Simulated assay, not measured.
Amino acid sequence: MMNRRRFLAIAGSFAATPAIAQRASWTGHAFGAEVSIELRGPDGVAGPALQRAQALIAEVEGLFSLYDPGSGPSVIERARCADGATAFRESDVDRG
């Protein structure tokens, strides 16, 4: 059973948490759209976590970009066109 003193201690710790939490946010463009990330956490945790998230987004976007000549899709398309195939067409997609 929870007594009054225990309840006040728990409630007080939750009330104090936002005061010590750090807010880190980022708004930018990724994957062809505007995106935003907002993290809240202990001092020294939210900022580095946001930086890691941004780095991961940049890495994934680089792997699958249609505009980066070094990305997988661009390399495949160049190889396909070098073999005499025409550029990718929607009719090439098997919808079956």
Rank of each mutant, 00 (worst) to 15 (best):
S74T: 09
Q22F: 02
A85L: 06
P69G: 02
S13R: 07
A11H: 07
F31D: 03
P18H: 06
D43R: 15
G70E: 09
L66F: 11
L63D: 12
R52Q: 14
M1Q: 15
G84V: 13
A79M: 09
A9D: 12
T86Y: 05
A11D: 09
D43I: 12
R5V: 13
I57C: 03
T27M: 15
I57G: 02
G84C: 12
R95K: 09
A55F: 15
Q54N: 07
E90A: 12
L66S: 12
F14A: 12
I57A: 03
R4Y: 05
P42I: 02
L8I: 08
F31A: 11
S36M: 10
L50S: 01
E77R: 14
M1P: 15
I37D: 00
M2L: 10
A19N: 09
D94K: 06
L50V: 00
A33F: 05
R5N: 10
A79L: 09
I76Y: 11
R95A: 04
F7Y: 14
F64L: 13
V93K: 03
R5A: 14
A87M: 07
D92N: 02
A46E: 00
M2E: 12
R52A: 15
G32I: 01
A30H: 00
A87R: 10
I20S: 12
G44L: 00
A53Q: 02
V45N: 00
D68V: 01
R4T: 07
R40P: 06
S36G: 13
N3H: 15
G12N: 02
E77S: 13
A58V: 11
D83T: 12
R6E: 09
A87H: 11
D68Q: 03
A24F: 01
G32W: 01
A82N: 13
S74N: 08
R89W: 02
L39F: 14
G28M: 04
S91Y: 00
D43N: 12
C81A: 14
A49S: 13
L66Y: 07
L39M: 15
F14L: 14
I10V: 09
I76F: 14
S74F: 05
F88C: 06
A9Q: 08
S13M: 05
E34R: 13
A16D: 07
V60C: 15
P73R: 00
F88V: 12
G28R: 02
V35M: 14
Q54M: 14
V35F: 10
S71K: 02
A82D: 14
F31C: 11
P48C: 03
L50M: 01
A15R: 06
A21K: 04
G41A: 01
C81T: 15
P42G: 11
N3D: 15
A58D: 15
E34L: 07
I20N: 05
L56T: 13
F64A: 10
G84K: 10
S74G: 05
L66W: 06
P48E: 05
